[in-house]
Design a protein around this nucleic acid. Structure first.
Lengths: 124, 124
DNA sequence: GGCGTTGTCAACCCATTGGTTGAACAACCT
DNA sequence: AGGTTGTTCAACCAATGGGTTGACAACGCC
């Protein structure tokens, strides 16, 4: 249990049904039964999905009479976005650098290049 | 096999080891053995992880003699970012609207309501 | 040719997951 | 108190996932 938050969040969203629930919750809170409507699975299964989303911090449940309205928590999304953007930026930057190097190598300048900006010790 | 792309990507990144690989690949291409270095799992396990990343489109492998350098593909990240940002924005907007409604309800103004509490330029 | 290196494939193990059904709990309404 | 509605708990089952080991393909280097 209790893997790190990021793993939980990614894992939770790896399921299409759960992603769909999130999509619908983005439009407004809903109860378990309301959420269960469209899918042809038992209410218990939906309840389980919600537990996964809740454990990941993507969703919270309040109490309102005998109902438990489910509410989408937007904050956790930032965690993912930050992670993704970080490495995407790095990768793209590296790509740009590589591209520059390639362009330079194509130039028939007789200047000896020795830049080799690459990764020499990437794997420790 | 072959779940939708988004599921594959999220699922691939739900594993800390794989996320770590991506992080290291963002700094530069690497071979399977180089990648395997830090982890105390077999090379075969690493190879499996790479297959998952590759199937998800996060990574590509070229051929270079008997080595198979692994390269991070930045594009797929956009898919995730788009999905995430969409619902995050929706959720946040809804929250802002709700907030506005609540504030309005608190105000004891006997102004006739006029339906939808939509966006009336509540540039907060 | 033979040999070490690099990586993948195949079979297997065990823990986790998504689904099921049936029972239980919780809060309301008479 | 008894009934109804909404939700969760418990036990179970089949499928998946991450790990292992062992065999083997492809290639470069003596």
């Amino acid at each position: 249990m209790s893997a790190d938050r990021l793993s939980q969040v990614f894992s939770a969203l790896a399921d299409p049904t759960r992603r769909d629930m999130v999509a619908r919750l983005a439009a407004g809170d809903a109860t378990v039964n309301e959420l269960a409507g469209p899918y042809d699975v038992s209410v218990q299964a939906v309840s389980k999905h919600l537990k996964v989303l809740e454990d990941a911090g993507l969703v919270s449940r309040s109490r309102e009479a005998q109902r438990r309205p489910v509410h989408l928590e937007a904050e956790v999304f930032d965690l993912m976005t930050k992670w993704i953007e970080r490495y995407r930026r790095e990768a793209e930057e590296r790509y740009r650098r590589l591209d520059a190097v390639l362009r330079q190598m194509e130039q028939p300048t007789d200047q000896h290049d020795e830049g080799r900006p690459g990764q020499e010790g990437t794997a420790s």
